[in-house]
C-alpha cells in the first residue's frame, strides 16, 4: 500500500475528499456572507440559521408533501430567500444608518429565534434525509471509492460559486451591485432603486445559505443546530479571506476545508481548531486578510 508520511494513501485521499466537501460548504456560505456584507455592511449572523432553514424546508417538503430532493433544491432556497427578503424589508433595513454592530446583533437575535423555534418543535436530534436515487451508490476511482452524491456536491458547489461570481462580475445587475457597494448614494441618484437592490442582495445571500443547507441535508442530516457551529467557522474563514473580494471568499473556503481535512489525518486533535489558529496567524501577519483591502 502506498504511504505518504506514514499515512495510507486511501486514508489521506478520503480525508482530503471530506475536507473538500466541507470546503464546498465553507465556500458557499462565506460567499453568501461576503455578498451580503459587501453591499449591506451587515455581518449576517443568521446565515447559519438560514442554512439550517434550507435543509429543514427540504426535509419538511419531503415529509409533508412528498416533494423530493431535486425540486427542493430549487424551491427551498427560494422560500428561504423570500422569508429573508421580508425580514430585510421590515426590520433589518431600519438599521443601515446605525453602527454596523447593530446589524450583527439583530441577525444574532434572529438566529436564536429561528434555531430556538426549530429545536423547541423538533428537538435537537438530527433527522436523516435520503440521498436522491439518481446519485446513490458510488464510483470506484481506482485509488478510492467516491460516493456519487459527494462528488455531486463538490461539482455543484463549484458551479454555484462560479455562477454567482459571473452574476456579480459580468452582468448589469452585478455592476449595480458593485457600484452600490462603492457609492450607494450616487447609484441611487442615477435612478437605481438601491433599497430594492439591498433586499435582493440579502435574499440572494440567504438563498445561497438555504441552497447549501439543502445540499448538506443528505450528508450531515437535518438538525436545528446544524448551522450554529458552522457559522462561527465560516466567520473565521471570512476573516482569513478578507471580505473585500467574492473570489477570495470562495477560494479561502475551499482551501481551509482541505487544510482542515489534512489536519484530521496528521494531527486529529487539532482539527477542530485549525481554522481558528490559521485565522490568528493571518491576523498577526496580514490583518486585512489574505484578499482583503484595509478598511
Amino acid at each position: 500500500m502506498t504511504m505518504i508520511f506514514g499515512i495510507a494513501l486511501p486514508a489521506l485521499l478520503g480525508q482530503l475528499l471530506i475536507g473538500f466537501i466541507n470546503g464546498s460548504f465553507y465556500a458557499l456560505l462565506s460567499l453568501g456572507l461576503a455578498v451580503i456584507f459587501g453591499l449591506l455592511r451587515v455581518i449576517n449572523f443568521a446565515h447559519g440559521a438560514q442554512y439550517m432553514l434550507g435543509a429543514f424546508t427540504a426535509y419538511l417538503l419531503l415529509v409533508h408533501t412528498g416533494i423530493g430532493f431535486w425540486p427542493a433544491l430549487v424551491v427551498a432556497p427560494l422560500i428561504v430567500a423570500a422569508i429573508s427578503a421580508l425580514i430585510e424589508r421590515t426590520m433589518l433595513s431600519r438599521l443601515y444608518d446605525l453602527d454596523h454592530l447593530y446589524g450583527l446583533l439583530f441577525t444574532f437575535g434572529l438566529a436564536l429565534i429561528i434555531e430556538g423555534t426549530f429545536r423547541w418543535y423538533y428537538g435537537a436530534a438530527g433527522q436523516p434525509y435520503a440521498t436522491p436515487q439518481l446519485l446513490s451508490g458510488g464510483t470506484n476511482l481506482g485509488f478510492m471509492f467516491l460516493p456519487n452524491y459527494r462528488g455531486f456536491v463538490v461539482v455543484a458547489s463549484i458551479v454555484i460559486c462560479l455562477a454567482v461570481w459571473l452574476l456579480i462580475e459580468k452582468t448589469r445587475l452585478g455592476a449595480y451591485l458593485r457600484a452600490a457597494t462603492e457609492n450607494p448614494q450616487l447609484v441611487q441618484a442615477f435612478g437605481v432603486n438601491v433599497p430594492l437592490l439591498l433586499t435582493l442582495t440579502y435574499a440572494l445571500g440567504a438563498g445561497l445559505a438555504g441552497l447549501a443547507g439543502v445540499l448538506a441535508a443528505p450528508i450531515y442530516q437535518v438538525s436545528p443546530l446544524m448551522g450554529s457551529n458552522l457559522i462561527i467557522i465560516v466567520f473565521a474563514v471570512v476573516v482569513i479571506g478578507g471580505m473585500g473580494s467574492i473570489g477570495g471568499a470562495i477560494i479561502t473556503g475551499y482551501v481551509l476545508g482541505i487544510l482542515e481535512g489534512l489536519t484530521k489525518v496528521f494531527y486529529p486533535e487539532a482539527s477542530n481548531i485549525v481554522v481558528f489558529v490559521i485565522m490568528a496567524i493571518v491576523l498577526m501577519l496580514r490583518p486585512a486578510g489574505l484578499f482583503g483591502k484595509e478598511i
Partner: peptide, 16 residues
C-alpha cells in the same frame, strides 16, 4: 417556553 427564542426576541426588540 423555549428560553432561547425569548432571548432572541428580546435581542431583536432591543436592537430595533
Amino acid at each position: 417556553v423555549p428560553v432561547t427564542v425569548i432571548i432572541g426576541v428580546i435581542f431583536v426588540l432591543c436592537v430595533l
